[in-house]
Simulated assay, not measured.
Amino acid sequence: MQVDAAKFSIAGSGTARASGTARDLNVEIAGSGDVDGTRLQAKSAKVEIAGLGSVRAVVDGPAKVDMMGSGDVDLGPRSRCTISKMGTGSVRCGS
């Protein structure tokens, strides 16, 4: 896909995979979800996880991560993140 905005919303459980480019990436997970965007490149991102979620993407710019629960977020070595976290989750941003 090549889009201005890529949005993924998972409530309950589910899996999404994406590849291509997006100016903005927006991910919302409430419950147990997985977004595999390891082949998706975005200029910015916003990730919200409430519960158990996993998000992987390649972000070349600013990202905001809000996590409540036990999740795993990896936005690649070029991301610059602002992180708000409550729980046992892990967030990997930047080099």
Rank of each mutant, 00 (worst) to 15 (best):
K85P: 07
M86Y: 08
A5C: 07
A63H: 02
A50E: 08
G37I: 05
D34F: 12
G14Q: 10
A45K: 00
G94L: 06
I10P: 04
I49C: 00
D36R: 11
R56C: 01
E48K: 14
F8D: 08
S84N: 13
V91H: 10
E48M: 11
I49Q: 01
S70D: 04
A22E: 09
D36E: 10
P62Q: 13
L40H: 14
R56Q: 15
D60R: 13
K43P: 06
S90C: 04
Q2Y: 05
T82A: 12
L25F: 07
G37S: 09
D74W: 02
T15Q: 14
R56L: 08
P62I: 05
R92M: 03
S90L: 09
G94P: 07
R39Q: 15
I29M: 13
G69I: 08
A57T: 00
S44H: 01
Q41Y: 07
S9F: 03
G20F: 11
R80K: 14
S84M: 06
A11V: 15
P77T: 00
C81M: 04
L40T: 15
S13W: 05
A30Y: 11
R39G: 08
D34E: 14
T21L: 10
A16C: 07
V35R: 04
C81R: 02
R56V: 05
V47E: 01
T38Q: 03
I83H: 03
A6T: 06
F8A: 14
G12A: 10
S70F: 01
K43H: 05
V47L: 07
P77K: 07
